[in-house]
Design a binder for these strands. Structure first.
Ligand SMILES: O=c1ccn([C@H]2C[C@H](O)[C@@H](COP(=O)(O)OP(=O)(O)OP(=O)(O)O)O2)c(=O)[nH]1
Ligand SMILES: [Mg+2]
Length: 682
DNA sequence: GTTCAGAGTAG
DNA sequence: CTACTC
DNA sequence: GAAC
């Protein structure tokens, strides 16, 4: 028992917000978390000025031999946590204690609450302090089907202390109606003319949010209303929404909570209030969603020359369907194209002039949270919506109708925008920042080689610190190093140091083959003040992969000997492998290890490789999506045409090479105005 | 209900 | 094959 | 989380 409270106490220590600031903009808060843990680690490790002998355990020098670390049997679902397993959420079911009878005490943490009749036999209850629903009685209302989902919700509610009944009576305190049910249907079903006072009617999101936040949130909240509910403050349509299923693997929809009190009361726009009636977003749509360009050649001349400013060609309208060739007419051309991220100049700079800047600021914060939780699809949606907002810099968006009419803004984001406008904040954001589970998840997947899946397993297993994981979990070699060097790898690298690493590589390369060249890419090429890692392309005019692969082997060996490379983390498997990931360090035992990536590139593919390795990642994805919409395919080796795609997007056809040597030509063929690296920060 | 980029590497 | 990473 |  005491472990449980200890569990959260520990977590709370890390509740300070710290978001991984994405691109090239540092942030003082960035490293807070990392520092916390580095301190943690140093307490153990640091006092020894010992040498850290380069460990080439995993790798290199003998790329043929996939080293002998076979001793570790995998089975990632490893060890038992000390104790607190018994109440871990249902997620943990895969490694539940039931499988380990040998484990001692697993008595239910909660004595049978006599209050709960109808308790399903199996589910273990949450510990008392999490029995947030305890005296409450829920009545669930059915949407005909969706039984599994509903069953889940019911079990969850019981788990957290609710009494669930299936016949309506005066003991009911909450009616939980599925999202498709309308308010008057409830009345009809219950044969009532109105819901008795004291009974709350909510959609299923409400219990979910309560669980998430570990407390009861206001069920009258905007977000939890059922369709057609006569809210005290009528106006807005009561749009519901559901805690939609989690796409793959399950990502977390953070609940959002609105202002329980004030409903609508638009804040004044920060400054200007240009009511620009009609001109809403004509063609100045900047970074917006993705989609753009016609098949027809847009004024190419336009962009080649003007590397600097507004080369944003854009068009209003949105037409989903794509069409083949047809019209070269710019009119129809505009139709199907919207805008892709890659079509616009992005520098990461903010524009405080935008009347929606406050909204943007808050949505960006939410996006950062989802990003740090690796919820890539929500992150994407937020990014797109934010782009749209940024582009409508002449109109203050304050109503639901306005918001939802923007491309990339749907029901839920429109609600959030309204909430922000009326309350100047997003309550959900405040909760999200504090969520201890997310903090810990973030900690774990910050380990190199640990992704969402493993991180969740660690959390489910009850681990709360890196020490826990290191001690108890079965790790792969890269993960082991990832923990060992956790704080090193989390530090940003000053631009100047990146340059030094690049020079060391370049120098070493000269002794191997004069004609082999290296280029520092990634955020460095985009001009970032500091970088997350060091990305280097190794290439030679006219050379093929095989030749260069040998060069890479020699290079790596030499750099290990120089004590520059410290370890390998992911090394090419084949002789035509093109990739080497590892860590390097400047001279000096106390210098931090840095993540370093080599990409071997045949001379002919240098353009596509530059494009790829310059990024950023969002920019690349945007370019690639655009290519695919035009029946082409873009990857790190080149741009291909006539790609035939089958049923599920699978490519049935490699396509034929269009261009790979010249970066600018790839832009050109795709119809994207060329952007220098500094403007590819999306 | 599916898509949201596309590929290399570890295990 | 999945998970992770670029 | 949005679009199709
Ligand atoms: O999912 C990804 C990640 C990266 N890249 C490309 C673009 C990126 O610029 C380059 C290098 O990757 P890295 O992870 O180093 O990103 P970065 O842009 O260099 O930023 P950082 O400063 O974090 O290293 O590889 C992708 O295409 N897709
Ligand atoms: Mg990088």
């Amino acid at each position: 028992m005491e472990n449980k409270s200890g569990f959260f106490d520990t977590l709370n220590k890390y509740s300070s917000d710290s978001f991984c600031n994405t691109d090239d903009e540092p942030s003082p808060e960035d490293l807070r978390l990392a520092e916390l843990f580095s301190a943690n680690r140093r307490a153990r490790d640091q006092p020894q000025p010992h040498s850290n002998p380069p460990q080439r355990n995993i790798n290199t020098i003998n790329p043929n031999i996939t080293t002998s670390t076979v001793g570790i049997k995998n089975t990632n679902i490893t060890n038992q946590p000390p104790s607190l397993t018994s109440y871990t959420g249902s997620k943990a079911s895969s490694l539940n204690i039931s499988k380990m009878p040998s484990k001692r005490k697993q008595d239910p943490p909660v004595s049978n609450p006599s209050t709960s009749r109808k308790r399903s036999k199996t589910k273990p209850l949450q510990p008392p302090h999490l029995q947030i629903f305890n005296p409450l009685t829920f009545f669930f209302m059915k949407p005909c089907l969706k039984r599994a989902e509903r069953k889940m919700r019911i079990e969850k509610a019981q788990e957290y202390g609710a009494t669930v009944v299936f016949t309506f009576s005066n003991t009911v305190t909450h009616i939980i109606a599925d999202k498709d049910i309308k308010y008057n249907e409830i009345l009809e079903f219950l044969q009532l003319t109105e819901i008795p006072e004291g009974i709350a009617v909510t959609n299923p999101r409400w219990p979910g949010d309560c669980i998430k936040y570990g407390k009861l949130v206001d069920p009258k909240d905007f977000w939890y209303q059922v369709h057609g509910c006569p809210t005290e403050s009528q106006q807005q349509n009561p749009l519901q929404d559901a805690p939609t299923s989690e796409p793959n693997g399950g990502q977390s929809p953070l609940p959002s909570s609105p202002p329980s009190s004030l409903q609508v009361q638009p804040h004044p726009p920060p400054k200007q209030q240009p009511e620009t009636p009609t001109n809403s977003q004509k063609d100045a749509l900047d970074e917006a969603i993705e989609e753009c360009l016609t098949t027809t050649p847009i004024n190419i001349e336009d962009f080649l020359g003007s590397s600097s400013s507004s080369d944003t060609e854009s068009s209003p309208e949105s037409s989903p369907k794509r069409r083949k060739k047809v019209s070269s007419s710019s009119n129809s051309a505009r139709d199907w194209q919207k805008h892709f991220q890659c079509m616009h100049k992005h520098t990461g700079a903010l524009n405080p002039e935008n009347p929606n800047s406050r909204t943007i600021q808050i949505l960006e914060e939410m996006m950062r949270i989802y990003d740090s939780l690796k919820d890539q699809w929500r992150t994407r949606s937020y990014r797109i919506a934010i782009s749209t907002l940024k582009s409508s810099n002449t109109t203050y968006i304050s109503t639901y109708e306005q918001a939802i009419s923007l491309p990339g803004v749907g029901d839920r984001l429109a609600k959030k925008i309204v909430e922000i406008v009326s309350t100047d904040r997003l309550q959900r954001l405040e909760y999200a920042k504090l969520d201890p589970k997310d903090q810990i998840l973030k900690l774990f997947h910050g380990i190199y080689g640990v992704g969402l899946v493993q991180a969740r397993k660690f959390v489910a297993a009850g681990y709360t610190t890196l020490e826990d994981v290191k001690k108890n979990a079965t790790l792969t070699e890269p993960q082991r190093i990832g923990i060992e060097r956790y704080s090193d790898f989390k530090q940003r690298i000053p631009r100047e140091e990146v340059k030094q690493h690049g020079e060391i590589v370049s120098t070493a390369l000269k002794t191997i083959d004069e004609k082999v060249q290296s280029h520092v890419m990634g955020s460095y090429r985009r001009g970032a003040k500091d970088c997350g890692d060091i990305d280097i392309i190794v290439t030679k005019e006219g050379a093929g992969v095989e030749e260069l692969h040998e060069v890479l082997e020699k290079l790596v060996e030499k750099l290990f000997d120089r004590k520059f490379l410290m370890c390998g983390l992911a090394i090419a498997r084949h002789d035509d492998g093109t990739k080497w990931h590892g860590a390097s360090r400047l001279e000096g035992e106390d210098k931090p290890w840095r993540r370093i990536d080599f990409l071997v590139v045949p001379g002919e593919e240098i353009g596509a490789a530059f494009l790829y390795f310059t990024g950023n990642d969002v920019f690349n994805r945007s370019m690639r999506l655009l290519a695919s919409k035009k029946g082409m395919r873009l990857n790190q080796r080149g741009l291909y045409k006539d790609v035939v795609r089958g049923k599920n997007r699978e490519k049935l056809n490699e396509g034929t090479l269009l261009e790979s040597k010249d970066e600018k030509k790839i832009f050109e063929i795709l119809g994207v105005p060329y952007r220098p690296p500094e403007h590819r920060i999306c």
